[in-house]
Amino acid sequence: MNRTITVRPGLRDIPQGRLGMWLLIAGELVIFGAAVVSYLLMRIRYPEWGEQAQYTSTALGALNTFVLLTSSFFVVKAHKASLAKDSKNVVRFLSLTLLCGLIFLIVKGIEYSTEISHGFTLRSPGLVDSGQGVASLFWMYYYLMTGLHGLHVLAGMIAIFVVMLQVRKGKYFHRVELAGMYWHMVDLIWIFLFPLLYILK
């Protein structure tokens, strides 16, 4: 019976694309992490933010989490197909990923529009005028973090789209994994934003 033994690769065996992507991810995580850390400190400082969090829609947030997790799943499927140089399947899975990204952005748009219609905007002048300046700070952080995350979703979608076009021509199969890693990072950030902004009330 054959037994496979996993051996950790040496430092120089890491392909440079993947190494670069990991470093980029580490850098991005620190940027988001810093925003999350400052949000957390403020959240501990102002318990009244829980009331504001009531207005975020857990259902839509959960839907978005589900969509992103599913898209991550499609990405690894695409990656697996890319190893077999199966460009048809890669394109299929990557377009499913793009679809998920699009759904995510649409749901986000619906959320934003309902929140804005309730008067919770970047500045929330209504809250400030009624003396709830602290509450308006919650919405600033909400828009800051979801907005930054949304930009990353967009960037990831563009990257995946470009890679998809390249793979369709039968080139650069290894880039599927790189774009996929970036996409997983976007997913990863959302995994933490979801409880922070939606579940905890």
């Binding site: 890491i14 997983h184 990072m185």
Partner: peptide, 12 residues
């Protein structure tokens, strides 16, 4: 996600 989807489990 990190260990399996991003394959960190197999990395250096």
């Amino acid at each position: 996600v990190i260990r399996n989807f991003m394959h960190l489990k197999y990395e250096n």
